[in-house]
Nucleic acid binder design. Sequence first.
DNA 1: TTTCATACCGAAAAATTATTCGGTACCTGA
DNA 2: TCAGGTACCGAATAATTTTTCGGTATGAAA
Lengths: 137, 137
Amino acid sequence: MYERKIQEDLDCGIIVAMKVFGAKWKPCIIDAISRGAKRPSELHREITNTSPRVIDMQLSELVAYEILSKTIHPGFPLCVEYSLTELGESILPILARLNEWGIKNKEIVKKVSNQQNVNEDLTDKKNKWSTVSSVCQ
Amino acid sequence: MYERKIQEDLDCGIIVAMKVFGAKWKPCIIDAISRGAKRPSELHREITNTSPRVIDMQLSELVAYEILSKTIHPGFPLCVEYSLTELGESILPILARLNEWGIKNKEIVKKVSNQQNVNEDLTDKKNKWSTVSSVCQ
DNA sequence: TTTCATACCGAAAAATTATTCGGTACCTGA
DNA sequence: TCAGGTACCGAATAATTTTTCGGTATGAAA
């Protein structure tokens, strides 16, 4: 496991919040689950811009932080289901807020980005932050 | 300048929002300015957990995104002042929301972190995310 | 016994972000 | 001219996060 060299101040709310759901694919996963996806295989199928491994890692972090609960249904085929806890649900309005702000103000960001990258087409490339389908529309 | 290898989807609000104010020291800088600090030298004095260079870099990004406006008063000594634009002000309630969530739920994060790092004291270390003094109180 | 679908994980590599170091330039007063 | 305060910036390095690759395990059915 990676061990931080520089410690974090876990009494700062923003640090805490970003630690819990401020990672590239977490908003995307939380969003997909809030829309009904439950099983890892569903999520893998639905979120195709990253590898299953990435999703698995973030899922287990979200479980550790009690944003998701995990239920194992033994049998065949093995079935695992994730769902939002109450704590997880409480993140949704904040994500919506962030998304709303971003949608409203994306033009300025695009403008700045265009000033910098005068090259490349964006087709088929991957992103630092994950597009969150329903939230992002 | 660093050139991204993986492009971002700037139509996703969350991606945009995180690009604008989701960086280690930006909430801290925005917060300090909202509380009255204006000049770079003041910010350097007030935010001591990182180097002046870091603050300068983030300031100019925030100006590019029109979160801050920059006024140069020629004369001696040279005086530069940054202040929040209307767009910048619109971030404050979102930061407050993030902070509120984090404060309310920091215990679970601490618990998880303790399970992992059974070592090190936190004294004098630096953080991935910056403590935001008034917001974080 | 092999195969297939499920779910998961370790470790290295790549990408990105943050930090440090050592500068420049401007203006003024000593 | 030199020192001292202000504001800024390039480039190398370090730290962190994300991605890729190649596995393990379980149970059932062919």
